[in-house]
């Protein structure tokens, strides 16, 4: 009986580090599962404007309203990146690009700690705040449509 317990204890001690380490693997996750069309739709809205510079400035103002500090921005490429530190780090990138001659596409993606954010509510909250600052209505986009 004692031997059994001793063996159990030894096995637990031997495998615990392995079990803990197996909780996360350290593969270089460069090519993660391709973003689904659904997620791309969740992350994208279109707006009836052609003023990309204003759209980027509004994105920066919205991110600041939401507690982010802007890390980087590029008017030519239409990108803004920002980080929110609130016990954990949330990083967001917003890209703005023209679609056709009358509208722009705004896409947001985020990571929380070490994971990509795919929660639709998170993006919904962002675009609600962004649309208010843009004084424009956001249109949902069909991710399968050409140009997206």
């Amino acid at each position: 009986m004692f031997a059994n317990r001793f063996i159990t204890f030894v096995l637990c001690m031997a495998f615990t580090p392995a079990a803990i380490l197996s909780g996360c693997n350290s593969a270089p996750k460069v090519n993660e599962a391709e973003v689904s069309l659904k997620l791309r739709s969740i992350q994208t809205r279109s707006y009836d404007t052609t003023n990309a510079n204003n759209a980027l400035r509004v994105a920066m103002a919205t991110l600041q309203d939401l507690g982010f500090v802007i890390d980087n921005a590029d008017a030519d490429l239409g990108t803004v990146s920002a980080t929110k530190l609130d016990n954990a780090a949330t990083k967001m990138t917003i890209t703005v690009r023209a679609r056709g001659k009358t509208e722009i596409l705004v896409r947001a993606n985020a990571q929380y700690r070490l994971h990509a954010v795919d929660d639709p509510i998170f993006y919904q909250q962002f675009f609600t705040a962004y649309s208010k600052s843009m004084f424009l209505e956001a249109h949902e986009v069909d991710a399968a449509a050409p140009g997206l």
């Binding site: 909780g23 996360c24 949330t90 929380y112 929660d119 909250q125």
Partner: peptide
């Protein structure tokens, strides 16, 4: 072992009030 495995990764789900 299951519990040990689960503790290996901290929660990475974004809180609903993150924004």
């Amino acid at each position: 072992f299951v519990l040990a495995g689960l503790t290996g990764c901290a929660s990475n789900t974004i809180p609903p009030d993150a924004l």
